[in-house]
């Protein structure tokens, strides 16, 4: 789904969100509540500059609109793979974006991520994955790396990884697998609940800010060990 249609379905006509290249920003109103909207489109590679542009919107919201919820609209092919971005310190720019989102949470802003198209690895870690909760549209795609590249790096047979990706949530790209692993809290716009605005409304009403993803992964059967290992470290003599 294109970003403008996502915004229309979420907010109707009361939205002032615009694209500047592959950068999205603006605000919109849901049930009388103004929401900051920031994100990317066109499968944007997240480079140093694009991370900073998103961070600026989050910082501005914290500084000028205390408590205003923030919606992250995610469509990225991952981090920008350029030498110049590495030279500048793309990891620091991304950490900065993550720290800004984390600050917003601590200052009482609800921060909700929505993967409406695709999310890959480095472009996702400091956006949706550091939000209070991340949601996705049913036909979105989330993955670390495409299978052929993963086969090259891990030196594992591509056919084996492809076969595993059909049955194993750890390798499969579908958003349902991220839901099972706890990385995505739920899907908006499903056959049972086609109304995207209802999804956002419920997400904003959920006041929990603790990281519950490991517990969700265990309860949903997609990531069985993480929560237990955390508990074992806490309990170790």
């Amino acid at each position: 789904m294109i970003w403008s249609e996502v915004v229309r379905q979420l907010f109707g006509e009361v939205a002032h969100v615009s694209a500047d290249g592959d950068f999205l920003s603006g605000s919109a109103v849901l049930d009388g509540q103004t929401v900051t909207v920031v994100g990317t489109t066109q499968h944007a590679p997240i480079g140093y500059a694009l991370a900073l542009r998103q961070a600026a919107v989050v910082l501005d919201t914290v500084a000028r609109h205390p408590g205003r919820p923030i919606l992250l609209l995610i469509d990225t092919q991952g981090q920008q793979l350029r030498r110049h971005d590495e030279l500048l310190g793309i990891n620091r720019a991304m950490a900065h974006l993550g720290c800004c989102i984390d600050l917003a949470r601590r200052q009482g802003h609800r921060v909700i991520g929505l993967v409406y198209d695709q999310a890959l690895s480095g472009g996702f870690i400091t956006s949706g994955l550091i939000a209070d909760a991340c949601y996705a549209l049913p036909d979105a795609e989330i993955r670390v790396m495409r299978i052929p590249a993963m086969a090259r790096v891990t030196k594992l047979p591509e056919a084996r990884l492809a076969a595993l990706s059909l049955t194993n949530p750890v390798f499969a790209p579908g958003v349902e697998n991220y839901v099972r692993m706890g990385g995505v809290r739920g899907l908006w716009g499903t056959a049972d609940q086609p109304d995207l605005a209802a999804g956002l409304r419920a997400a904003l009403a959920d006041a929990s800010t603790a990281d519950q993803r490991a517990a969700d992964g265990r309860a949903r059967g997609g990531r069985l060990l993480a929560a237990d290992v955390v508990q074992q470290v806490l309990a170790a003599a």
Binding site: T154, M181, G183
Partner: peptide, 12 residues
């Protein structure tokens, strides 16, 4: 990468 999705969530 051998744990792909689980590793990505773990880092976050």
């Amino acid at each position: 990468l051998h744990e792909a999705n689980a590793g990505l969530i773990a880092v976050s």
